[in-house]
């Protein structure tokens, strides 16, 4: 092994060409197993990096909710398109049949939080009066119990066929439940804040969507 040549070779590595090696480097690589090994290891690291990149993780659904909340708070959004926002939530509940059940649940949630799911701009929300005032847990707790009971049954059925999927549903459920808890707290603290009610509605909607997706998958797995 010629150490000087190896050092020269390594010094040229950072400007390594994409194509074949130029002549002096190529002949050195042929004759030096150590530099060849170095190049192979660097290639292996690069390939492993590419593999990491191929598995790009999905950001959690609540990230957009939090972000939008902040945008609203800062007054950056001057016009709200309710349908567009909820379309994102509903993107993973494709079946109309299950969707019907969710609509029923959402109607209950909507009446509880006093929010209308039309395309009313944010500016008009404060004119929507609550049908039922949320002062404590009982009503929302009942709704949550209904959703939890349904989800529990679906997840139990799913876990027999596809345990990792069932675990994933449970994890997502935990995230949504945290979000609901936060939103409920916010509504209790600011019962007249229409935005707090909007987000509680969104949180219930997300839970209903999760139920719809879980029922879908459970049906598929049981076929």
């Amino acid at each position: 092994m010629n150490t000087t040549q190896c050092m020269q070779f390594e010094a040229s590595l950072d400007q390594r060409p994409d194509g074949p090696w130029p002549e002096p480097a190529a002949s050195h690589l042929d004759s030096c197993p150590q530099c060849r090994a170095l190049c192979e290891e660097l290639d292996a690291i690069r390939a492993a990096g590419r593999e990491l990149g191929a598995n790009e993780p999905e950001p959690p659904a609540h990230l957009w909710v939090l972000l939008r909340d902040q945008l609203d708070t800062e007054g950056l959004i001057r016009e709200t398109n309710q349908r567009g926002w909820f379309a994102g939530w509903l993107g993973f509940s494709p079946r109309f049949a299950v969707g019907g059940a969710c609509v029923a649940l959402l109607a209950v949630a909507g009446s509880l939080v006093g929010f209308r799911s039309g395309s009313a701009p944010t500016m008009q929300l404060d004119r929507v009066r609550p049908n039922v005032s949320i002062t404590g847990r009982p009503l929302t707790a009942d709704l949550n119990k209904t959703l939890d009971g349904d989800l529990e049954r679906v997840v139990a059925s799913l876990s027999q066929k596809n345990a990792p999927l069932a675990m994933s549903v449970r994890e997502n459920l935990g995230v949504v439940d945290n979000l609901i808890a936060l939103c409920e707290k916010s509504v209790r603290e600011n019962p007249d804040n229409p935005m707090a009610r909007e987000y509680l509605y969104g949180a219930y909607e997300q839970k209903a969507s999760l139920l719809a997706a879980a029922i879908d998958r459970s049906t598929l797995e049981n076929r």
Binding site: E56, W64, R78, W85
Partner: peptide
């Protein structure tokens, strides 16, 4: 200030 446009940008680049 269009909210739907904000969301579209987020959906395009969020991941």
């Amino acid at each position: 200030g269009d909210a739907a446009a904000f969301e579209r940008i987020y959906r395009l680049h969020g991941r």
